[in-house]
């Protein structure tokens, strides 16, 4: 097992990905797309408006009741990856970590033969690329990732909510952010995507220094994005506030029906992926 900080020092994003994804590529994701397929999912009773062609006549002959045979389809999904490039994400190793995670997700999606699109946002959507399966996708992504600068305020609502019309229905949306935004806005935005039938996964990334004793204990904290300063406080109080905030984001995710994965930058991204796939299998 490699140390995450050592891995992040590797400039080649491919090499980083291969090191991190060793043994994890077997993971597969399901799409919430019910239809005709070889893989059986369930029976349900016929309701008015259903397609007659999907009636299971064998069951009808046995039970004299109309049943629809549903199957789970494995199709090529549209995956949207969004990376938060606001000023708060520039803290310590967060940028490299989040970029690596971002690339890993794209890498997996590409090798799963899914259509993959991506965007970078802070207070607005700075860059957006429609889902594609072109071979050059990962190369271009590396170029784009090298270009980005982490600055500005976080505004998920303005960045993603107002761009929702460009996102296809029933697609998978993966958002990597430190959630340094109003939690109502985060929740509202992700819920609205969920309503559109999308499968939303929020990767909440925090730097390990954000819970460090030396940083939190009796210091005045200055917000990178706003320059606002919070007066000094003791460590326990600060940790309690921090945990409360992350819990509230998690609770919003549960209420909103979207997936939430909390990561610290001292955790290996492949562990994050493990968490992710575990969650997806549930």
């Amino acid at each position: 097992m490699y140390n995450i900080e050592e891995i992040l020092k590797i400039s080649d994003m491919y090499l980083r990905s291969k090191l991190l994804l060793r043994g994890y590529l077997a993971g597969i994701h399901r799409v919430p797309y019910k239809g005709i397929s070889a893989e059986f999912s369930q029976y349900r009773e016929y309701v008015q408006g259903d397609d007659f062609s999907r009636l299971d006549f064998k069951v009808f002959l046995r039970t004299e009741k109309f049943f629809i045979k549903e199957s789970e389809n494995e199709i090529n999904a549209d995956i949207y990856l969004f990376l938060d490039i606001s000023g708060s994400m520039s803290y310590n190793i967060k940028p490299e970590y989040s970029k690596t995670l971002f690339f890993l997700m794209a890498y997996i999606a590409f090798h799963q033969l899914d259509n993959c699109g991506y965007g970078f946002f802070s207070n607005k959507m700075h860059f957006f690329k429609k889902p594609t399966r072109k071979r050059t996708l990962l190369t271009k992504l590396i170029i784009d990732l090298n270009k980005i600068k982490f600055k500005g305020k976080t505004d998920i609502k303005n960045s993603i909510h107002y761009k929702a019309d460009k996102i296809k229905k029933n697609s998978i949306i993966i958002l990597i952010s430190d959630c340094a935004d109003d939690r109502k806005n985060i929740s509202l935005t992700l819920k609205s995507l969920k309503v559109r039938g999308c499968d939303v996964i929020l990767f909440h990334v925090n730097d390990f220094l954000e819970k460090d004793e030396n940083v939190l204990k009796n210091t005045r904290l200055k917000d990178i994005e706003t320059d606002n300063i919070v007066s000094s406080d003791n460590l326990n109080s600060r940790l309690s506030d921090f945990n409360a905030f992350t819990e509230s984001i998690k609770k919003d995710a549960l209420d909103g029906g979207y997936d939430y994965i909390h990561l610290f930058t001292n955790e290996q991204p492949n562990i994050a992926l493990e968490k992710f796939f575990k969650r997806r299998k549930q």
Binding site: S88, M89, Y91, K94, T154, D178, A180, D181, D182, N206, D207, E210, V215, N218, T219, R220, L221, K222, D223, I224, E225, T226, D227, N228, I229, V230, S231, S232, D233, S237, R238, S240, D241, F242, A244, F245, T246
Partner: peptide, 29 residues
Amino acid sequence: LTGKVVYYPSIRYFKGSKTRQGNIPGMIK
């Protein structure tokens, strides 16, 4: 008396503490 100033990604987490508006917004600063 008040402790050194340390940069932090977001002070939204610490609503328990009193926040003080930065003297000057970043751009103007």
